[in-house]
Design a protein around this nucleic acid. Sequence first.
DNA 1: CAGCTAAGTTAGTTGGGCTAAGTATGACCG
DNA 2: CGGTCATACTTAGCCCAACTAACTTAGCTG
Lengths: 149, 149
Amino acid sequence: MTDPSTPRPGQADPGVLAEGVSAVLRHLVLLLRRTTAGQPVTTQQYAVLGSLEQGPRRMTELAEEHAVQLPTMTVQINRLEDAGLVARGADPADARVRTVELTGEGRDRLLAVRRARIARLGQDLAALTEKERATLAAALPVLAKLGRT
Amino acid sequence: MTDPSTPRPGQADPGVLAEGVSAVLRHLVLLLRRTTAGQPVTTQQYAVLGSLEQGPRRMTELAEEHAVQLPTMTVQINRLEDAGLVARGADPADARVRTVELTGEGRDRLLAVRRARIARLGQDLAALTEKERATLAAALPVLAKLGRT
DNA sequence: CAGCTAAGTTAGTTGGGCTAAGTATGACCG
DNA sequence: CGGTCATACTTAGCCCAACTAACTTAGCTG
């Protein structure tokens, strides 16, 4: 695999760039795994809690947003419910749908974990130069656009 | 969670930038998951095969590189060995260590999967503008530097 | 050579994903 | 108005991937 720290000329070509992005993605995934091991909620649980921050959601919505099948989300929510972090509710207009919302404890946990993650990431970012941070900031919208076909 | 597609001013500040990076990482992880589902090797297996491309490695090396405990790597290698993609060997200098290397089939599989992945990523990248690709290319070395504390 | 350390493996648990199949409710149509 | 189809979930059963604890085997050292 290509060393992600040694960019080569001609990277604006999609094919060549893809190799670099692929290598960097691998690096980032390994990094993420290292930094999120042993936290009070798993990455998945944290992500689901994040989806509930703005208010109750339906199971199907959550499954779609997390690119997961419904049964998978059912199990996730079961675990979060057992942990007291979310509560299931009902939709008065349609008895088939189950809603899910954060409990007070769930919201506290979400915010605490987010603070910890951002602080950790902030340390890494603080080690960069101002120029490097600007370069990174410029690339964020591009990365966010990837896969939004 | 912050919408990764709406960057705000002041992102060169490590704290603010961290939020954006965090959101984008979430997006990329979801994207990766979607694009790698149902391939002939799992993401983990692919990553391990990639580590073997340059030649035989020891179990401990592999475990460290993938930020995983030894027993986890043992099981991974067992599966890859059962699939005929890698072979275990011995270190003549130290009878405790087991080496692992690609089989011919393993190398073929690695290259095929890599081609498929890079092609897929290349499609996404081709949808960007030339300028966006340049922005992304410039950020790759910075991303590669993250976490290399 | 006794005892400690290092390298791997085995066993058992948990989390997270999948498909297939079941239940209950809503919607539609003759 | 009742039968049939579709929708929203849940349950059950499977695999992969991570962990810790405990075991085996081999090297190292006093």
